[in-house]
C-alpha cells in the first residue's frame, strides 16, 4: 500500500500518493461537471432559439468570420496536445520539457485570444453587434435602396462594396440583409432575430474567452511552480488537474464552432 519512499508532496491526511492524486482528479471532475452544466444552460437556450428562428440564425451565422474561427480551432486543439505532453514531461521528471510545453500552451492560448480580439474589433467596426449599432447600420442600408428597383439596389451595393474599406457607406452584412428583404417581401428576415443570434454569439464566445484567460493564469502559475521546483514527478497531478480544465474549455469550443460559425456556412453572399 504505502510507498517505499515518503514524499514531501504527500499531504498528511492521505494514505499514499495514489489516493491523493485520485482525490485531486475527482475534485476537478466534480467542478467540471458544474462547468458543463453552466455551459449546458447556454446551449439549451441556443437550441430553443435556433429552433424558433432557424432561418435568421443561419443568415446571422453566415456573417461570422470562419477563417479566424478555423485558425483559432487549430490553436486550441494544438494547445491541448502541448498540455498533455506537459503532463508526460512532469511524470518523467523532465522539468525543461514541462516548462517548454506549458509555455507553448500559454502562447497558443494567447494567440487564440488575440485573434478573438481582432475578430470582435472587426465586428464592432462593422456594427455587427446587437442593439443600437446594428439598428442604425441596418436602417441606413434599407433607406439607401428604398426607392430603387431590386436590380438597381443590387448594383448600388456592388458599387459600394467595390470601394476601399474606409470609403464604403455600408457594412457588407447590412447591404446583404437589406437586399434580401427587398427581394422577397413574403419571406422577410427579421433583423431582431438576427440580433438574437448575435447576443448568443457574444455571450457564449465571451464566457468561453473568460475561461481561456483563467486557464492561461493557471498555466502561468504552473510555469512558476515548475521553475521553482514545485512540481516533482509525484506532483504531476497538479499539471493534470489544470489540463482537465483546459481540455474542457477546448471541448466546449469544438461545439461553439459548428453552432456559431458553421450554422450558415456555405450560404452565398
Amino acid at each position: 500500500m504505502a510507498n517505499a519512499h515518503a514524499s514531501p508532496v504527500l499531504k498528511h491526511h492521505f494514505e499514499d500518493l495514489g489516493q491523493q492524486h485520485a482525490c485531486e482528479r475527482l475534485g476537478m471532475w466534480m467542478f467540471l461537471a458544474t462547468e458543463i452544466l453552466f455551459f449546458g444552460g447556454l446551449f439549451a437556450a441556443y437550441t430553443i432559439y435556433r429552433m424558433l428562428y432557424p432561418h435568421e440564425f443561419e443568415i446571422a451565422s453566415s456573417f461570422m468570420n470562419r477563417q479566424i474561427a478555423t485558425v483559432n480551432t487549430v490553436f486550441l486543439i494544438t494547445s491541448s496536445l502541448t498540455m498533455t505532453l506537459a503532463i508526460r514531461c512532469a511524470k518523467l521528471g523532465d522539468r525543461a520539457g514541462l516548462i517548454r510545453n506549458l509555455i507553448l500552451t500559454v502562447a497558443l492560448g494567447t494567440a487564440f485570444m488575440v485573434m478573438k480580439g481582432f475578430e470582435y474589433a472587426h465586428e464592432f467596426h462593422e456594427n455587427l453587434a446587437p442593439g443600437k449599432m446594428f439598428r442604425t447600420e441596418y436602417e441606413k442600408a434599407t433607406k439607401a435602396v428604398a426607392g430603387l428597383a431590386p436590380a438597381a439596389a443590387d448594383e448600388y451595393f456592388k458599387a459600394d462594396a467595390a470601394k476601399p474599406e474606409h470609403e464604403r457607406a455600408h457594412a457588407h452584412w447590412a447591404a446583404e440583409l437589406a437586399l434580401k428583404n427587398k427581394a422577397s417581401a413574403d419571406e422577410v428576415v427579421d433583423s431582431g432575430k438576427v440580433q438574437m443570434f448575435l447576443c448568443f454569439y457574444f455571450v457564449m464566445t465571451g464566457i468561453h474567452g473568460i475561461h481561456i484567460v483563467v486557464g492561461l493564469g493557471l498555466i502561468l502559475w504552473l510555469v512558476y511552480e515548475a521553475a521553482t521546483g514545485g512540481i516533482p514527478p509525484e506532483n504531476y497531478s497538479t499539471v493534470e488537474v489544470v489540463s482537465l480544465y483546459w481540455h474542457l474549455v477546448d471541448a466546449i469550443w469544438l461545439f461553439l464552432m459548428p453552432l456559431l460559425y458553421l450554422a450558415g456556412a456555405g450560404m452565398h453572399h
Binding site: N3, D16, L17, G18, Q19
Partner: peptide, 16 residues
C-alpha cells in the same frame, strides 16, 4: 487502482 503503484529505482514513487 490508484493504490497500486510499482516503485522502481528511477521512479521511486511509481509515477510512470
Amino acid at each position: 487502482d490508484p493504490h497500486n503503484t510499482t516503485p522502481t529505482a528511477d521512479d521511486p514513487h511509481g509515477m510512470r
